[in-house]
Protein backbone atom coordinates (compact mmCIF):
# COMPACT_ATOMS: atom_id res chain seq x y z
CA UNK A 1 0.00 0.00 0.00
CA UNK A 2 2.76 2.37 0.90
CA UNK A 3 4.63 1.51 -2.28
CA UNK A 4 1.60 2.20 -4.45
CA UNK A 5 1.08 5.44 -2.60
CA UNK A 6 4.65 6.47 -3.30
CA UNK A 7 4.36 5.64 -6.99
CA UNK A 8 0.90 6.82 -7.89
CA UNK A 9 -0.01 9.51 -5.40
CA UNK A 10 2.89 11.32 -3.81
CA UNK A 11 4.67 12.44 -7.01
CA UNK A 12 1.47 14.08 -8.23
CA UNK A 13 0.88 15.69 -4.89
CA UNK A 14 4.40 17.12 -5.15
CA UNK A 15 3.72 18.43 -8.64
CA UNK A 16 0.59 20.26 -7.63
CA UNK A 17 1.86 21.59 -4.36
CA UNK A 18 4.79 23.29 -6.06
CA UNK A 19 3.56 24.20 -9.55
CA UNK A 20 6.33 26.66 -10.29
CA UNK A 21 9.05 24.13 -9.59
CA UNK A 22 7.18 21.61 -11.71
CA UNK A 23 6.97 24.14 -14.56
CA UNK A 24 10.69 24.73 -14.25
CA UNK A 25 11.36 21.02 -14.56
CA UNK A 26 9.11 20.76 -17.62
CA UNK A 27 10.64 23.77 -19.34
CA UNK A 28 14.12 22.47 -18.58
CA UNK A 29 13.09 19.16 -20.11
CA UNK A 30 11.68 20.85 -23.21
CA UNK A 31 14.89 22.76 -23.74
CA UNK A 32 17.01 19.62 -23.50
CA UNK A 33 14.47 17.94 -25.72
CA UNK A 34 15.08 20.43 -28.52
CA UNK A 35 18.72 19.45 -28.44
CA UNK A 36 17.82 15.77 -28.74
CA UNK A 37 15.56 16.69 -31.64
CA UNK A 38 18.43 18.39 -33.42
CA UNK A 39 20.50 15.22 -33.35
CA UNK A 40 17.54 13.05 -34.32
CA UNK A 41 16.81 15.37 -37.22
CA UNK A 42 20.13 14.48 -38.83
CA UNK A 43 19.15 10.81 -38.75
CA UNK A 44 15.70 11.46 -40.18
CA UNK A 45 17.03 13.47 -43.12
CA UNK A 46 19.34 10.73 -44.27
CA UNK A 47 16.89 7.93 -43.56
CA UNK A 48 14.19 9.72 -45.53
CA UNK A 49 16.30 10.28 -48.59
CA UNK A 50 18.40 7.17 -48.81
CA UNK A 51 16.80 4.63 -46.51
CA UNK A 52 20.12 4.33 -44.70
CA UNK A 53 20.23 4.33 -40.95
CA UNK A 54 23.24 6.56 -40.53
CA UNK A 55 25.02 5.39 -37.43
CA UNK A 56 27.69 7.99 -38.13
CA UNK A 57 25.43 10.95 -37.33
CA UNK A 58 26.91 11.20 -33.83
CA UNK A 59 30.41 11.08 -35.23
CA UNK A 60 29.45 13.79 -37.70
CA UNK A 61 28.32 15.95 -34.77
CA UNK A 62 31.66 15.38 -33.07
CA UNK A 63 33.66 15.92 -36.24
CA UNK A 64 31.86 19.16 -37.11
CA UNK A 65 32.28 20.51 -33.59
CA UNK A 66 35.95 19.47 -33.48
CA UNK A 67 36.63 21.20 -36.78
CA UNK A 68 34.94 24.37 -35.58
CA UNK A 69 36.67 24.41 -32.23
CA UNK A 70 40.03 23.52 -33.76
CA UNK A 71 39.81 26.40 -36.21
CA UNK A 72 38.77 28.81 -33.49
CA UNK A 73 41.70 27.74 -31.30
CA UNK A 74 43.97 28.54 -34.25
CA UNK A 75 42.64 32.10 -34.12
CA UNK A 76 40.12 31.98 -36.94
CA UNK A 77 37.17 34.33 -36.25
CA UNK A 78 33.89 32.65 -35.36
CA UNK A 79 31.98 33.50 -38.55
CA UNK A 80 34.79 32.28 -40.79
CA UNK A 81 35.24 29.12 -38.74
CA UNK A 82 31.51 28.42 -39.09
CA UNK A 83 31.67 28.78 -42.87
CA UNK A 84 34.77 26.59 -43.13
CA UNK A 85 33.28 23.94 -40.85
CA UNK A 86 30.11 23.90 -42.98
CA UNK A 87 32.29 23.58 -46.08
CA UNK A 88 34.17 20.69 -44.51
CA UNK A 89 30.85 18.93 -43.87
CA UNK A 90 29.98 19.31 -47.58
CA UNK A 91 33.34 17.78 -48.49
CA UNK A 92 32.68 14.93 -46.06
CA UNK A 93 29.30 14.40 -47.77
CA UNK A 94 30.88 14.29 -51.23
CA UNK A 95 33.54 11.82 -50.08
CA UNK A 96 30.98 9.57 -48.38
CA UNK A 97 28.82 9.56 -51.52
CA UNK A 98 31.78 8.74 -53.78
CA UNK A 99 33.63 6.20 -51.66
CA UNK A 100 30.87 4.55 -49.66
CA UNK A 101 27.35 5.01 -50.99
CA UNK A 102 27.98 4.73 -54.73
CA UNK A 103 29.95 1.46 -54.64
CA UNK A 104 27.33 -0.01 -52.31
CA UNK A 105 24.24 1.09 -54.21
CA UNK A 106 21.53 -1.59 -54.33
CA UNK A 107 23.12 -3.52 -51.47
CA UNK A 108 20.89 -4.63 -48.60
CA UNK A 109 20.25 -2.02 -45.90
CA UNK A 110 22.28 -3.90 -43.33
CA UNK A 111 25.40 -3.54 -45.50
CA UNK A 112 24.92 0.21 -45.72
CA UNK A 113 24.34 0.32 -41.98
CA UNK A 114 27.62 -1.48 -41.40
CA UNK A 115 29.31 0.96 -43.74
CA UNK A 116 28.07 3.87 -41.63
CA UNK A 117 29.56 2.20 -38.56
CA UNK A 118 32.82 2.19 -40.48
CA UNK A 119 32.38 5.89 -41.23
CA UNK A 120 31.79 6.49 -37.50
CA UNK A 121 35.12 5.04 -36.50
CA UNK A 122 36.91 6.79 -39.31
CA UNK A 123 35.48 10.22 -38.47
CA UNK A 124 36.19 9.80 -34.76
CA UNK A 125 39.74 8.65 -35.39
CA UNK A 126 40.45 11.21 -38.07
CA UNK A 127 39.00 14.04 -36.00
CA UNK A 128 41.21 13.15 -33.06
CA UNK A 129 44.30 12.75 -35.22
CA UNK A 130 43.87 16.20 -36.66
CA UNK A 131 42.58 18.12 -33.64
CA UNK A 132 43.79 16.09 -30.68
CA UNK A 133 41.80 14.26 -28.03
CA UNK A 134 41.65 16.92 -25.31
CA UNK A 135 38.41 18.40 -24.13
CA UNK A 136 37.97 21.68 -25.98
CA UNK A 137 36.03 24.59 -24.62
CA UNK A 138 33.66 26.03 -27.19
CA UNK A 139 32.25 29.53 -27.05
CA UNK A 140 30.68 30.96 -30.17
CA UNK A 141 29.35 33.99 -28.34
CA UNK A 142 25.83 32.87 -27.50
CA UNK A 143 24.95 34.62 -24.23
CA UNK A 144 24.87 32.27 -21.28
CA UNK A 145 23.38 33.84 -18.19
CA UNK A 146 20.71 32.52 -15.85
CA UNK A 147 17.58 34.67 -15.50
CA UNK A 148 14.28 34.45 -13.75
CA UNK A 149 10.85 34.54 -15.34
CA UNK A 150 7.62 34.01 -13.43
CA UNK A 151 9.55 32.47 -10.58
CA UNK A 152 11.30 29.97 -12.85
CA UNK A 153 15.05 29.97 -13.12
CA UNK A 154 16.09 29.55 -16.75
CA UNK A 155 19.29 29.74 -18.72
CA UNK A 156 19.62 32.19 -21.58
CA UNK A 157 21.71 29.74 -23.61
CA UNK A 158 19.01 27.08 -23.45
CA UNK A 159 16.50 29.53 -24.85
CA UNK A 160 18.84 30.40 -27.71
CA UNK A 161 19.48 26.75 -28.41
CA UNK A 162 15.77 26.06 -28.50
CA UNK A 163 15.12 29.03 -30.78
CA UNK A 164 17.87 28.07 -33.22
CA UNK A 165 16.74 24.45 -33.18
CA UNK A 166 13.15 25.47 -33.84
CA UNK A 167 14.17 27.78 -36.69
CA UNK A 168 16.23 25.04 -38.25
CA UNK A 169 13.44 22.51 -38.04
CA UNK A 170 10.89 24.94 -39.45
CA UNK A 171 13.22 25.87 -42.29
CA UNK A 172 13.84 22.25 -43.20
CA UNK A 173 10.15 21.40 -43.10
CA UNK A 174 9.41 24.26 -45.53
CA UNK A 175 12.35 23.25 -47.71
CA UNK A 176 11.07 19.68 -47.99
CA UNK A 177 7.50 20.75 -48.61
CA UNK A 178 7.74 23.66 -51.04
CA UNK A 179 10.89 23.56 -53.13
CA UNK A 180 11.90 21.67 -56.25
CA UNK A 181 14.86 20.09 -54.49
CA UNK A 182 12.71 19.23 -51.51
CA UNK A 183 10.26 17.47 -53.79
CA UNK A 184 13.10 15.63 -55.50
CA UNK A 185 14.37 14.56 -52.07
CA UNK A 186 10.97 13.19 -51.12
CA UNK A 187 10.77 11.44 -54.47
CA UNK A 188 14.12 9.74 -53.97
CA UNK A 189 13.05 8.70 -50.49
CA UNK A 190 9.96 7.00 -51.88
CA UNK A 191 11.36 5.15 -54.86
CA UNK A 192 14.91 5.24 -56.22
CA UNK A 193 14.11 3.68 -59.59
CA UNK A 194 11.15 5.90 -60.32
CA UNK A 195 13.17 8.95 -59.29
CA UNK A 196 15.88 8.00 -61.76
CA UNK A 197 13.33 7.47 -64.51
CA UNK A 198 12.04 11.03 -64.22
CA UNK A 199 15.60 12.28 -64.41
CA UNK A 200 16.43 13.07 -60.79
CA UNK A 201 20.16 12.46 -60.38
CA UNK A 202 20.57 10.33 -57.24
CA UNK A 203 24.17 11.38 -56.83
CA UNK A 204 23.40 15.06 -56.40
CA UNK A 205 20.49 14.36 -54.10
CA UNK A 206 22.60 12.19 -51.81
CA UNK A 207 25.28 14.83 -51.59
CA UNK A 208 22.65 17.44 -50.71
CA UNK A 209 21.13 15.27 -48.01
CA UNK A 210 24.41 14.31 -46.39
CA UNK A 211 25.54 17.93 -46.49
CA UNK A 212 22.34 19.11 -44.83
CA UNK A 213 22.72 16.36 -42.24
CA UNK A 214 26.27 17.64 -41.79
CA UNK A 215 24.99 21.20 -41.17
CA UNK A 216 22.45 19.90 -38.69
CA UNK A 217 25.29 17.98 -37.05
CA UNK A 218 27.34 21.17 -36.89
CA UNK A 219 24.55 23.07 -35.17
CA UNK A 220 23.94 20.20 -32.75
CA UNK A 221 27.68 20.03 -32.14
CA UNK A 222 27.82 23.74 -31.30
CA UNK A 223 24.92 23.44 -28.85
CA UNK A 224 26.13 20.32 -27.07
CA UNK A 225 29.75 21.38 -27.34
CA UNK A 226 29.06 24.70 -25.64
CA UNK A 227 27.18 22.92 -22.87
CA UNK A 228 29.57 20.10 -22.10
CA UNK A 229 32.77 20.85 -24.00
CA UNK A 230 33.81 19.32 -27.31
CA UNK A 231 35.04 15.85 -26.50
CA UNK A 232 34.85 12.26 -27.62
CA UNK A 233 31.63 11.56 -25.70
CA UNK A 234 29.81 13.98 -28.00
CA UNK A 235 29.48 11.21 -30.56
CA UNK A 236 27.59 9.15 -27.97
CA UNK A 237 24.60 11.48 -28.02
CA UNK A 238 23.75 9.65 -31.21
CA UNK A 239 22.60 6.87 -28.90
CA UNK A 240 20.26 9.27 -27.13
CA UNK A 241 18.69 10.06 -30.50
CA UNK A 242 17.64 6.43 -30.98
CA UNK A 243 14.71 6.46 -28.52
CA UNK A 244 13.70 9.82 -29.97
CA UNK A 245 13.53 8.25 -33.41
CA UNK A 246 11.61 5.25 -32.21
CA UNK A 247 9.08 7.56 -30.57
CA UNK A 248 8.78 9.96 -33.47
CA UNK A 249 9.15 7.60 -36.38
CA UNK A 250 12.25 7.34 -38.56
CA UNK A 251 10.75 9.18 -41.51
CA UNK A 252 9.07 12.13 -39.87
CA UNK A 253 10.62 15.54 -39.25
CA UNK A 254 7.81 16.63 -36.91
CA UNK A 255 8.23 13.23 -35.26
CA UNK A 256 11.85 13.97 -34.48
CA UNK A 257 10.82 17.21 -32.81
CA UNK A 258 7.93 15.87 -30.77
CA UNK A 259 9.88 12.71 -29.90
CA UNK A 260 12.79 14.81 -28.66
CA UNK A 261 10.51 16.98 -26.54
CA UNK A 262 8.71 14.00 -25.01
CA UNK A 263 11.96 12.29 -24.14
CA UNK A 264 13.45 15.50 -22.77
CA UNK A 265 10.50 16.26 -20.52
CA UNK A 266 9.85 12.62 -19.66
CA UNK A 267 13.30 11.88 -18.35
CA UNK A 268 13.54 15.09 -16.33
CA UNK A 269 10.14 14.61 -14.71
CA UNK A 270 10.80 10.93 -14.05
CA UNK A 271 14.18 11.70 -12.54
CA UNK A 272 12.89 14.32 -10.15
CA UNK A 273 9.59 12.82 -9.03
CA UNK A 274 10.10 9.08 -9.30
CA UNK A 275 13.90 8.89 -9.19
CA UNK A 276 14.32 9.02 -5.43
CA UNK A 277 12.11 5.92 -5.07
CA UNK A 278 14.79 3.70 -6.52
CA UNK A 279 17.80 5.77 -5.68
CA UNK A 280 17.92 8.08 -8.70
CA UNK A 281 19.67 7.96 -12.09
CA UNK A 282 16.45 7.17 -13.92
CA UNK A 283 17.42 9.83 -16.44
CA UNK A 284 19.99 7.56 -18.07
CA UNK A 285 17.68 4.73 -18.99
CA UNK A 286 14.18 6.20 -18.91
CA UNK A 287 14.28 7.11 -22.63
CA UNK A 288 15.13 3.55 -23.62
CA UNK A 289 12.32 2.10 -21.50
CA UNK A 290 9.88 4.48 -23.15
CA UNK A 291 11.20 3.48 -26.57
CA UNK A 292 10.76 -0.17 -25.69
CA UNK A 293 7.13 0.41 -24.76
CA UNK A 294 6.61 2.18 -28.06
CA UNK A 295 8.20 -0.65 -29.99
CA UNK A 296 5.67 -3.01 -28.45
CA UNK A 297 2.57 -0.94 -29.11
CA UNK A 298 3.34 1.42 -31.96
CA UNK A 299 6.44 0.29 -33.85
CA UNK A 300 6.09 2.93 -36.58
CA UNK A 301 6.35 5.71 -34.00
CA UNK A 302 4.00 8.63 -33.46
CA UNK A 303 4.27 10.09 -36.95
CA UNK A 304 5.99 7.40 -38.97
CA UNK A 305 4.36 5.98 -42.07
CA UNK A 306 2.37 2.91 -41.27
CA UNK A 307 4.05 -0.17 -42.61
CA UNK A 308 1.54 -1.90 -44.81
CA UNK A 309 2.70 -4.72 -46.99
CA UNK A 310 0.45 -5.54 -49.88
CA UNK A 311 0.38 -9.20 -50.76
Amino acid sequence: MEVLNAIFVLPFVDMFSEPIFFAEVVVGGLLTGVMYSLVALGFVLIFKASGVFNFAQGAMVLFAALTLVGLMEKGVPVWLALIIAAGVMVIVAVIIEKLVLRPLVNQPDIILFMATIGITFFLEGFGETVWGSDIHRLDVGIPDAPFEIGGMLLNEFDIWAAAIGAAMVGGLALFFRYTVIGRALRAVADDHQAALSVGIPLKTIWIVVWSVAGFVGLVAGIMWGTKSGVQFSLSLIALKALPVLILGGFTSIPGAIVGGLIIGVGEKVAEIYWGPLIGGAIENWFAYMLALVFLLFRPQGLFGEKIIERV
Binding site: R183, A187, A195, G199, I200, E305
Partner: peptide, 19 residues
Protein backbone atom coordinates in the same frame (compact mmCIF):
# COMPACT_ATOMS: atom_id res chain seq x y z
CA UNK B 1 3.62 0.94 -60.28
CA UNK B 2 6.59 2.93 -59.00
CA UNK B 3 5.06 6.12 -57.67
CA UNK B 4 6.14 8.31 -54.79
CA UNK B 5 3.49 6.97 -52.47
CA UNK B 6 3.80 9.56 -49.74
CA UNK B 7 3.26 12.45 -52.14
CA UNK B 8 0.07 13.86 -53.66
CA UNK B 9 -0.99 13.19 -57.23
CA UNK B 10 -0.04 16.74 -58.12
CA UNK B 11 3.44 16.46 -56.58
CA UNK B 12 4.02 13.13 -58.28
CA UNK B 13 3.26 14.57 -61.67
CA UNK B 14 5.30 17.69 -60.85
CA UNK B 15 8.39 15.50 -60.39
CA UNK B 16 7.96 14.62 -64.06
CA UNK B 17 8.64 18.30 -64.84
CA UNK B 18 11.92 18.12 -62.96
CA UNK B 19 14.06 18.17 -66.08
Amino acid sequence: VALFTGMSTLDNIMTGRNL
